[in-house]
Nucleic acid binder design. Structure first.
Lengths: 152, 152
DNA sequence: GCTGAAAGAACCGGTGT
DNA sequence: ACACCGGTTCTTTCAGC
């Protein structure tokens, strides 16, 4: 699907605040409410808009401690990678797991309450997974920027 | 604000799909629509729900190339950090910027179309910022897991 | 793409526990 | 403080142009 300037503007609106009504958006674009409605439907059907979610404030629900955990596996056989990926995806503390280039195989984003909770996570969950070689933890001192908005 | 089991369930619903109606949620919880409505309002007022957003599929809008860029500054005077943070926050390609512990000062999440676009970003934007020492790029081979849902 | 109307959700009193 | 009912207002949704 090809998207034009109007679609782009609609997407920027919804990425920033999906509670905006079609009326508000239509006012901004100079279109009718229905036109906006139909464009959004198309963008949803095309999978360009993949979902609508509520974003929570981590620090208000005791998940203000963010750690990036670099993981190296012992071996890199397909089965090992696959098993690790499946298991790590099921850990609720892990909000992101990327298979990456460089010195490590994976980078995990881990959200927990504090250092104690992180230690607990490492000891009882992560280092219990099979095939893990080494890990290095990078602690977040400050979130300078954090957005779900993709520039169009 | 203290949140109870019902609040937690509401938050899990909305984190996964904010288009769910209060009616659907109330059915699941065995509450009235109004009760759900009032709880959600409280969670919003308390800032626990910080916003509602549409999530796009990066690969469908030519932003399927994700790079983590580790940045070291030359000096660490407060002014230098501050200036760097301000400038980097304005770059639309950067969706995340974390001040971190370890060998590097910052880790940036950069979303672009492809390697060409990344090179362009590095050459014309990032390495043009003041006080940058060294950078290391970590390329994403595969997104194993990526979610905005925080487990409660 | 638009208009206009039907369907449905959010929202807001007032009330009871 | 918490939950409920019932009605009003606003949005989404759709038929017809």
């Amino acid at each position: 699907m090809k998207i034009d300037e109007l679609d782009r503007k609609i997407l920027m609106h919804l990425q920033q605040d999906s509670k905006k009504t079609n009326k508000e958006i239509s006012n901004d674009l100079g279109l009718s409410v229905t036109a906006v409605y139909e464009r959004i439907r198309k963008l949803e059907k095309a999978g360009i808009i993949s979902k609508y979610v509520a974003v929570l404030a981590p620090e208000k629900i005791e998940k203000g401690f963010m750690v990036l955990c670099q993981v190296k596996l012992i071996q890199h056989k397909k089965d090992f990678l696959h098993k690790f990926e499946k298991e790590v995806a099921h850990l609720p503390e892990v909000t992101e797991c990327l298979h990456v280039s460089g010195d490590y195989d994976y980078i995990l984003k881990v959200l927990v309450k504090d250092m104690d909770a992180y230690r607990e996570f490492m000891v009882t969950k992560l280092t219990n997974l099979d095939h893990i070689g080494s890990t290095t933890s990078i602690f977040t001192i400050n979130k300078v920027k954090e957005t779900t908005v993709i520039n169009l």
